[in-house]
């Protein structure tokens, strides 16, 4: 049952990369969302899928009685989701600031730091 999810991840990565390669920064941002979600799913699949119960320990027990889902990837994904949120929010703020300063959200037109070479110049 992992294979179906792997296929979905591949589609997400491809869509994310395609969007990130656009010159529109909003598209870039959407691509980043797709890519970070895909990364979370990769971690999830790498810990193996199971329809088993969540990793909880019943009252009065020292350890889970039946096989439970792998808890470590879940903890990692939780961290990753939150950090991803921080990253995306900061990127969004950058896009807004870029627009305010440069008047465009087209990255092809943001050539202030590395201006295109003038003709006849090395």
């Amino acid at each position: 049952m992992e294979s179906a999810l792997v296929l979905v991840i591949g589609v997400m990565v491809a869509a994310g990369v395609y969007l990130m390669l656009a010159s529109n920064l909003l598209c870039y941002l959407f691509g980043l969302i797709l890519l970070s979600n895909a990364a979370n799913l990769v971690i999830f699949v790498a810990g193996r899928l199971t329809r088993a119960v969540p990793p909880l320990i019943p009252k009065g027990q020292e350890a889970p009685l039946e096989p439970v889902a792998n808890a470590l990837p879940q903890a990692m994904i939780l961290t990753a989701i939150v950090i991803g949120f921080g990253l995306l929010a900061f990127t969004l703020a950058l896009v807004v600031a870029c627009y305010r300063e440069l008047g465009t959200i087209d990255s092809d037109h943001m050539r202030l730091a590395e201006p295109p070479p003038k003709r006849g110049e090395h």
Binding site: F44, T50, R51, P54, V68, Q74, I77, L78
Partner: peptide, 11 residues
């Protein structure tokens, strides 16, 4: 939903 179905309700 995928997280939910495969044993990760917190996530």
């Amino acid at each position: 939903l995928i997280f939910l179905f495969f044993g990760a309700p917190d996530v």
